[in-house]
Amino acid sequence: MSSIISLKHLYKEYQLGDGSVFTALRDINLDIHEGEFSAIVGPSGSGKSTLMHMIGLLDKPSRGEIIINSRDVSTIDDNQTSTLRNSYVGFVFQQFNLLNKLTVQENILLPATYSRRNLDFDPIARSEMLMEKFGIISKKDSYPNRISGGQQQRVAVARALIMKPQLILADEPTGNLDHKTGNEIIDLFEELNKSEGITLIMVTHERELAERTRRQIRVLDGEVISDKKK
């Protein structure tokens, strides 16, 4: 299996007000392979969210390399980072992070409006296919604040998939959902992973959810303390 992203000796340090340095991530070495369904687990403050932000190119490391498609992307400029974020990764957030002023379909299409390349598919047709698949086609023209939490998270997943990314990053995707709905979202992830081979990384502090993935990366005090594959 080829790796879609490799982190090499990655550090993230913050200068604190009193002049001391806080190390959020320390010498992280990690390879994510195509088709994997992994969980990054750890208590709050452990650095797991920072790690996710690095993988999702939302933040830049202090030192070390992030290699995507055999190219170090830790030092590329904002334009290139944005382009890469747009095409290579799809985000699913805890708070869903949908724009309430856009309809469900417009939300799903939002990444396509920021695309700088010629897409080899029709985003509108793809958005309709995804809504159909996730059972939200009837909510196509509704606004996100008018639909249930479970439906909102499905919209977010559809949005994450619209650009056919290589990787889906989910940050506490079930955090704002009740147990049953949360499980349904994980079912959806499992299905996407199994039937379509989509690579998924989920950040969670819930052991039960993490157990459902095939690889668990444990983070504590900014370091990977264990990396178990099933």
Binding site: L58, S82, T83, N86, N97, L99, Y114
Partner: peptide, 16 residues
């Protein structure tokens, strides 16, 4: 601010 964050995460550049 949050909207800007979402748009940036989805691929909007500073120019966008």
């Amino acid at each position: 601010t949050r909207e800007v964050g979402i748009r940036r995460a989805l691929g909007a550049t500073t120019r966008d």
